[in-house]
Design a protein around this nucleic acid. Structure first.
Lengths: 227, 227
DNA sequence: TAGTGGTCTAGACCACGTA
DNA sequence: ACGTGGTCTAGACCACTAA
């Protein structure tokens, strides 16, 4: 036997895939399964909890545990610092601050951060290079109220400074593709219209907006994961 | 007090962000923390395990628990069926099989699946539409050995059929951006060179290769997540 | 080989939400 | 009201691995 929680998880998954339990069905209670498999309820709980986190099961108190109707695969993406990502590929990392100024953000940015239209924010544009070739163009709007001290963004990238100094609790990430504008193409040394991989990220410290950043990655960039 | 595992998790996170415990530091053992917080070791274990899964801590038997050196954010992406995704936006879903033939896959596909160069595979090209406008172009290679029966892919999309009939255990996913080729642009009714969001997916059933698919999404497509 | 995390148990109480 | 999952406890044994 040797039924650990991973064995229980595998057996439940097997029954779902074999259609013993079909999408929408309520499966037996933790207590019943614990009895069947001859393990403690906590062991069954661990197995079913993992499957629920993966999106395979849906659990509600009193209502019981059901096989999820919509088979959603859930993948976990690692989102590293640009510097670490480049260094991880064995390339030399460098970084250039292209511009730094107080300005009024575009309406879309102000709206996403929940700030009034006219608010002044710190606007940074910088370039991340791999082996001295442009890799990522970063366009960032910073809420100046979250900056107690004003670091020198020539020396340290905004991302790394924020990570170390402004712990945030929540954030949105959006992944998309876009054709490079003329400016982007020039700065990234690409033909105009090249397909860029865009990561848009907005972060809050509790209820206080912190930053809104767009990272435009040159063609060849990939995010990988396993399910 | 009322220290549940979420409270422990929050307090550990607070200490890390306050630099009480710095990246690379070894933090106290589960036993010590359980004593300090006045809870059972299992409660501390749950809290630290969650933080390890999020990439904040690194745990090894005997060596102890350390604050992760490289602050990697880990985001979970939901990867729904194309049909459900379109219907979820309130649009009408439809689907067209454009071609279906046995052929020899390009070397890159054969290599990724670990099949010999000359192997014959089933090649499907199909189009997913939202409100009768092209949304996703699917280019799929199927290992015929995994198909016990040959379904009619005019009626059911390969993805949904596979999901219901070929349970797979492992899979790779890769996200990238690419300019539309002339063919892709024509099929998707886009200007040539449009930036497409590409999801490449390879799946195995244990050690048996099942399928390798490229989903090209029209501009405007986004994947979102929260961290 | 010894210290640390990983897991299991048997029991208990509680929170939630359906009926 | 009551059934179900969510969590906690105190103790135990095991697995891994650094010293």
């Amino acid at each position: 036997m040797l039924a650990g929680w991973e064995d229980i998880r595998a057996e439940v998954l097997r029954r779902i895939r074999a259609h013993d339990w079909r999408p929408g069905d309520t499966i037996p209670t933790e207590e019943a399964l614990a009895l069947e498999f001859g393990v403690a309820r906590a062991t069954v709980n661990r197995a079913l909890r993992e499957l629920a986190e993966e999106g395979v099961l849906e659990r509600r108190r009193k209502a019981g545990t059901r096989v999820a109707l919509h088979p959603v695969r859930r993948a976990t993406l690692d989102i590293p610092l640009t510097r670490l990502e480049i260094e991880g590929r064995g390339q030399a990392y460098s970084y250039r601050l292209l511009s730094e100024e107080m300005a009024s953000p575009p309406p879309a940015v102000a709206a996403r951060l929940g700030l009034p239209q006219g608010a002044q924010m710190l606007h940074l544009v910088c370039l991340h290079l791999a082996d001295d070739r442009p890799a990522v163009l970063e366009d960032r709007w910073l809420n100046p109220e979250t900056l107690k001290v004003q670091p020198d963004f020539h020396l340290v990238s905004a991302n790394e400074w924020l990570l170390a100094n402004v712990p945030y609790t929540t954030g949105d990430i959006s992944l998309s593709a876009a054709n490079a504008t003329a400016d982007e193409a020039r700065l990234l040394d690409l033909p105009p219209g090249s397909a860029l991989f865009i990561i848009d990220r907005t972060t809050w410290d509790r209820d206080h907006p912190v930053t809104c950043v767009r990272l435009a990655h040159v063609p060849g960039f990939r995010m990988r994961t396993t399910v």
